[in-house]
Write a protein that binds this DNA or RNA. Structure first.
Lengths: 220, 220
DNA sequence: CGCTGTGAAGTGCTTCACAGCC
DNA sequence: GGCTGTGAAGCACTTCACAGCG
C-alpha cells in the first residue's frame, strides 16, 4: 500500500477508532456513520472521514462504514493484524502489572519473554512466563520478537535499550523515567502516567462541580 | 494569574519540562538553556522559549533558566505546588499497580482513599490505605479529595464517575475502557496504554535495525 | 557577547461545504 | 435522500530571525 502523506495525528487516532469499533462490535452494531463515530470519540465527523480518506476511504456513500471491515482495515494499517511478540525487561511491580494487562492481547500483542537481573527471580513464573536472566537477551529476532518493553529503574534504561536493539528489536515501549538514545530508525514510545496526571489540576475547576454533575455533555 | 491564550500543546509539554528539570536537579545542574532543554525533550529551542513566554518568560538573557525557579513556576502553573489528594476506585491488579506507582508523589499527588465493591477486600490494606466499600464514596470534598481515579471494569465506569462527581470530585483519571459522559466543566483524562502500544508497529522498520544500532540520534 | 522573548512567516492539521455515489 | 470523499478555506501551532537585555 502506498498512502499519501498521513498526518501523525491521524495515526494517533487510529487505535482509538479501533477501540470504538471493538465496542460497537460488542454491542452487535454492524454499521456506523462518521457522525456516530465522531460522537463516540469526541470530534468532528469531517475529520473522521478525512482520516480514513488518507487510506482511500472505507465507507459506502449513503450507508456509512461496515464496522467489522473498518476494524480490519485499521488493523492492517497499524500492522495489528498479525501477532506482535514482545519481550519485557524488568519484572518489578510495574512489569508484573504489564504482564497482567489484559487488553494488550486484544490489539495483537503477546508478551512471550520476560527478563530481570535479580537472581532470585530467575526461573520464577510471572503471567505464565518463566523469567530469564538479562544475559539471555539475545537473538530475540530469532524468537520472532520485535517489540521490547522497558520497565527497569531509570539508571538501567539506556543499557536495556542497547541490549534489546542488539538482540534485534525494532521498536520499544519505555515505561522507565530516564532518557535514552537510540538510532533514529528505531521507534520509541514513552509511557509515563505521571505526565497525564500532571495535566489534570490545570484543567480542574476551582469551585465544586457537584451542582452541574448531571448536565452531561460529550462522551470520553 | 491571567495568561494570554495558551495552546493546549504547550500545557501538554509542561509536565515533560518539569520531568526534565527534576532530572537536571538530580544531576546538580543549576541552570539550563533553551537549547539544552530542547535537546533533552526532543524539540526546537524556539519552541521552548515560546512555551515559557506564554506565561511571561522565566529566563535571564545571556544566562538561560534557573532550573529550580523554572521547576517551581511550572508547578505553580499546573497547580502541582500543592498536594492533590486523590481517591482510587477499583482495587484490582491495575488499581494496586497505581497505588504502588512511586512517581505520582513526585508530582504532588497523594492517593488517600481506595474503594472497591468486593466485600472480601473491604478493610484490607493496599499501599498503606484501608480499602473502603464503594458505598462510602461520599463527601470526598470534605476530605479534601478533588481527583478521582477510575480503575474498575468498563461496565462500571459510568456509575463510578457519577458517584465520584456526586462526592465532589472535580477531575478524573480514567483507566477503564468504557466511555463515560460527564458535565463539561469536569476534566477527564483517559489513560489506555494499549493505545500507545498500538501505534508502535506502524512505525517499526520492516527490516532489522541491528546494523544501525549504534548510530544514535536524539534522546527520548 | 550570549541567550531570551517575540512578532512575523511558514506549516500542517482541522473544518467546511459540496460534489459524487449508493 | 443519505452519507461519504475531498479540495479549499480557516485556524493553530511551530519555526524563524532578530531585537532587546543582562
Amino acid at each position: 500500500m502506498r498512502y499519501r502523506r498521513v498526518p501523525d495525528e491521524t495515526i494517533r487516532r487510529l487505535p482509538k477508532y479501533l477501540r470504538a469499533l471493538l465496542l460497537l462490535m460488542d454491542r452487535g452494531q454492524k454499521t456506523v456513520s462518521s457522525v456516530a463515530l465522531a460522537d463516540l470519540m469526541g470530534g468532528n465527523p469531517g475529520r473522521v472521514r478525512k482520516d480514513f480518506s488518507y487510506f482511500g476511504g472505507f465507507g459506502k456513500r449513503g450507508f456509512g462504514y461496515d464496522v467489522e471491515t473498518l476494524a480490519g482495515e485499521i488493523r492492517k494499517i497499524l500492522r495489528l493484524n498479525v501477532v506482535n511478540k514482545a519481550a519485557l525487561v524488568g519484572v518489578g511491580n510495574l512489569g508484573r502489572a504489564i504482564l497482567a494487562f489484559p487488553s494488550l492481547k486484544k490489539y495483537g500483542f503477546e508478551i512471550v519473554a520476560a527478563f530481570d537481573n535479580d537472581p532470585k527471580k530467575i526461573g520464577e513464573k510471572a503471567g505464565g512466563i518463566v523469567i530469564e536472566h538479562i544475559s539471555q537477551i539475545c537473538d530475540l529476532e530469532q524468537r520472532g520478537v520485535y517489540v521490547g518493553i522497558i520497565a527497569v529503574p531509570r539508571q538501567a534504561a539506556q543499557q536495556t535499550a542497547d541490549d534489546l536493539l542488539e538482540a534485534g528489536v525494532r521498536g520499544i515501549v519505555k515505561f522507565s523515567q530516564g532518557y535514552i538514545t537510540v538510532p533514529k530508525r528505531v521507534k520509541v514510545i514513552t509511557i509515563d502516567i505521571a505526565m497525564d496526571f500532571a495535566r489534570l489540576p490545570y484543567y480542574m475547576p476551582r469551585s465544586p462541580s457537584r451542582a452541574a454533575a448531571f448536565r452531561r455533555t460529550g462522551s470520553l
